[in-house]
């Protein structure tokens, strides 16, 4: 019999509750101490006498919380899709080279524009932000289109994986060349972009971001049957009536879009996409992706919120780069999961 906390009827409400608590903590905690009662008043729209507090909450903490939630969910789902498609526990959203494509796009805007037109995009304010987002999406979707084309042309799943990784290396090397010939300020901006952040958006844009990440994440539920069969291997999947090429295309499209969006708005966020699927498989003992995707959504959001919370713990002067925190949390998770599996299998 499965332990009580692993039953689906208990697990999902439990983890949703945990997620809510984390979201609340993200609003309540930070370098400025705001009383809980005030936090509740401001968030529920009653307003507060203290304008600074109101500003901190509505302009900083609330968008950050929403962005972390959406980004975590998207990356968790994308990672799960990739790990199942490639049947590889080390796969993550970045294996297809999509985030490298983003980096390349952003690299061109931040590094080349400075050289060619003699100005820095970072000084352009909102237009600069939009240019970066557009460049990132452009780079990511260009790589995605290439991967989809290759996946359609050639048969093997493994070949797609290898080509994705190779595209990643190629874009990194181009970015390296760009960096070498760029102005110091531009390189600095590029490095900052590469560290990732949940706090680049206004509250309106955060809501938009939440919609375009959460909706496709939930749409991935419709891929769960394909994913269940893909996990059995291409031959069994095809014998059970699955159109392999189409399924693979849809899975790559879904994971690729999620990764592209998150990378465009937050920069390349590492580790969440790789660690969360392991957590999702750990909490419920099932191979059914209908449940695994739900788990990945909730746990992805929760992990991102936890990382965001740790990145700006009370008492710290400034925020830590989010990627330092995600790796700090993600690496032990992956190690412990592998450790636990080792014990079970032998």
């Amino acid at each position: 019999m499965t332990p009580i906390f692993q039953r689906k009827s208990v697990l999902i409400p439990l983890s949703l509750g945990f997620l809510l608590i984390l979201a609340a903590l993200n609003l309540a905690l930070g370098s400025v101490n705001i009383p809980i009662a005030e936090v509740v008043d401001i968030v529920t729209g009653k307003g507060s006498s203290n304008v600074i507090w109101e500003n901190i909450l509505l302009r900083t903490r609330l968008p950050q919380t929403i962005v972390a939630l959406g980004a975590g969910m998207a990356l968790g789902v994308a990672g799960l899709l990739m790990q199942t498609l490639f049947r590889n526990p080390l796969a993550g959203p970045s294996v297809l080279g999509i985030s490298s494509g983003s980096s390349l796009g952003v690299g061109f805007v931040l590094l080349v524009a400075g050289q060619v037109w003699g100005f820095s995009f970072s000084r352009l304010g909102i237009w600069g932000d939009l240019a970066i987002i557009t460049a990132s999406l452009g780079g990511a979707f260009a790589v995605l289109a290439l991967i989809l084309f290759i996946s359609h042309k050639i048969g093997g799943t493994l070949s797609v994986l290898i080509i994705g990784v190779m595209i990643g290396y190629l874009s990194n090397s181009v970015v390296g060349v760009l960096k070498f010939y760029s102005m110091e300020e531009d390189v600095h901006n590029y490095v900052i972009w590469g560290l990732g952040s949940f706090s680049r958006m206004s509250v309106d844009r955060a809501y938009l971001f939440a919609i375009i990440t959460i909706v496709p994440s939930l749409l991935a539920l419709f891929l769960s049957k394909s994913l269940n069969l893909m996990a059995l291997g291409d031959r069994y999947a095809s014998n059970l009536g699955l159109k392999i090429k189409r399924a693979r295309l849809l899975i790559i499209l879904c994971a690729g879009t999620l990764t592209a969006i998150v990378t465009a708005f937050c920069g390349p966020i590492i580790f969440i996409g790789m660690a969360v699927p392991h957590l999702a498989k750990l909490v419920s003992r099932t191979s059914n992706h209908l449940y695994l995707i739900c788990n990945a959504c909730i746990l992805g959001a929760a992990t991102a919120l936890l990382c965001n919370l740790l990145a700006r713990l009370p008492g710290m002067e400034s925020e830590l780069p989010i990627n330092s925190v995600t790796a700090f949390i993600g690496a032990p998770v992956v190690i412990s999961v592998i450790w636990k599996k080792r014990k079970e299998n032998f």
């Binding site: 539920l221 996990a231 291997g233 209908l290």
Partner: peptide, 30 residues
Amino acid sequence: VVLTDRVVVPNASVQELVGYGRSPYTGMLG
């Protein structure tokens, strides 16, 4: 078919595997 390849399906129980045998007949969510 039953193949010779030894597939490793993480976390799959016997019942789930046999259930996947019904895939040709199940709906979109399986």
